[in-house]
Deep mutational scan, measured.
Amino acid sequence: GKELVLALYDYQEKSPREVTMKKGDILTLLNSTNKDWWKVEVNDRQGFVPAAYVKKLDP
């Protein structure tokens, strides 16, 4: 199944490769191989958020 992450903080995108999220958002995790930036999908948009700003949810 899909892996989900919880947004721990608000994040405002600073480049087109990033996405904005609000604290409490549930996002689909697409790629977590980079320790600093994780690729997520939110509202049909894909992009990166700081890994420290999200937490993996237990399945």
Score class of each variant (00 low, 15 high):
L4I: 13
A52E: 14
L6R: 11
R45A: 12
K14M: 07
E18H: 06
V19K: 01
S15C: 11
D25G: 04
P50V: 00
T20A: 12
S32A: 12
T20Q: 05
Y11T: 01
F48V: 14
R17Q: 13
K55N: 05
T20N: 12
E18N: 04
L29T: 02
V19I: 15
Q12I: 06
K14F: 04
I26H: 15
D58P: 13
K23Y: 04
K56M: 14
L6F: 07
K22D: 07
F48L: 15
E41F: 06
N31D: 15
V5M: 06
V19F: 10
Y11I: 01
P50I: 00
K2T: 10
D36F: 14
A52D: 12
G47D: 01
G1H: 09
V54F: 04
T33N: 12
Y53L: 13
D10P: 05
P16C: 10
R45Y: 05
Q46K: 10
K14A: 12
P50Q: 01
Y9I: 14
V42K: 15
G24I: 00
V19W: 03
S32I: 07
Y9K: 15
K39P: 01
D44N: 14
Y53R: 09
Y9A: 15
R17W: 05
L29A: 04
P16G: 09
W37S: 04
V19P: 02
G1Y: 15
K35T: 10
R17L: 09
G24Y: 02
F48G: 02
Q46P: 09
P16Q: 14
E3Q: 07
D36P: 02
V5D: 00
A51S: 14
V5A: 15
V42R: 13
N31P: 04
E18K: 04
A52M: 10
Y9L: 13
T33R: 11
G47I: 03
D10G: 05
L6N: 04
K23T: 10
K56Y: 07
N34H: 15
D25N: 08
A7R: 00
L30A: 05
K14L: 11
K55P: 00
S32D: 10
P50K: 02
K39V: 12
F48K: 05
D44H: 12
R17S: 11
L57I: 13
S32Q: 07
L6K: 15
W38K: 02
V40L: 03
F48D: 07
G47M: 05
K55Y: 03
L29K: 02
R45H: 09
L4A: 08
W37V: 05
D36I: 15
G1Q: 05
D44A: 12
V54E: 00
L6Y: 10
S15N: 10
G24T: 01
T28E: 12
K14T: 14
E3D: 12
E3V: 10
W37H: 04
E13R: 08
K2Q: 08
Y9T: 14
P50W: 00
W38P: 02
V5L: 13
K23V: 15
L30F: 04
E3C: 08
K55H: 05
E13A: 11
L6P: 02
W38D: 02
V5N: 01
T33V: 06
L4Y: 06
L57K: 04
D25I: 02
G47F: 06
N43I: 06
P59D: 04
R17E: 12
G47N: 00
K22M: 12
V19M: 08
K55I: 04
I26C: 13
E41W: 05
R45V: 13
K22S: 14
D44F: 10
S32H: 13
S32K: 10
P59E: 08
E13L: 06
E3F: 10
A51H: 03
Q12P: 06
F48W: 14
W37T: 03
E18G: 11
K22F: 12
K39L: 09
R17N: 14
S32G: 12
K56D: 03
K23P: 03
S15G: 10
K14P: 06
R45D: 04
D36N: 14
K23I: 03
K23W: 01
L57Y: 09
G24A: 03
K23C: 06
N31S: 15
Y9P: 02
V19Y: 03
Y9W: 11
F48S: 04
L30H: 15
L6V: 14
W37G: 02
F48Q: 06
L57R: 05
P59L: 05
A51W: 00
L30K: 07
E41H: 05
L57G: 04
I26E: 07
R45K: 15
I26F: 10
S32L: 04
Q46M: 10
L30Y: 04
V19C: 08
L30V: 14
Y53E: 02
I26P: 02
Q46S: 14
N43S: 11
Y11Q: 02
I26K: 11
E18R: 03
N34K: 10
T20I: 02
L6S: 09
K2M: 15
Y9E: 15
L29F: 03
V49I: 08
V5E: 01
G1P: 01
E13Y: 04
P50M: 00
R17V: 09
L29C: 12
